[in-house]
Amino acid sequence: MPPSDAPIPRFPQPLALGLRVAPLLPMSLSLTVYARRIAQSHPGLFKRLGEYDSTPFVLDPTDLPIVIELQPNKGRPSVRVVRGAGQGEARIAGPLAALLGLVHGAYDGDALFFSRDLVIEGDTSAALALRNAVDDAELDLSEEIARLTGPFAAPIKQLMAIAERRTGVSLSRPEEVDLW
């Protein structure tokens, strides 16, 4: 977990440039499978969205040349990766590392918002519902990826841990310990 007062890492520009020409369909399909896996293992996440469980969201990693359109579909989510602004009723924009840190509880959403590292546009209420639902779900994206990779789970997790240490980007949920 990165220190919460450290600068938010930015995605390396050369790699981001590669995404300008990368095929988007495989990414969309892979992320849809991934999102549905998360929906299966964390059904409470979509219940907590309440009236916004069918609201289309745009997740905009501002240091990447793509955006992610997320359609929750009442717990059967679909994901589309597009170039340009994307379409949705609520947009949450910020550096990729900030968005990942929010998911893992490494950053506080309001603090990122006050500092303008995170920008919300469109339906503010839906954006808040998504943020609160994700915060409660205690997701671990590395763990979810590892589960999808079968026999490669252990090396994948090790790889993610190394990447997390090297980049300072929160790629997994920090282990909580009882302090008292």
Partner: peptide, 10 residues
């Protein structure tokens, strides 16, 4: 109560 678990813990 509207803040994240990260905030609460800190």
């Amino acid at each position: 109560r509207q803040r994240s678990r990260s905030y609460v813990a800190e």
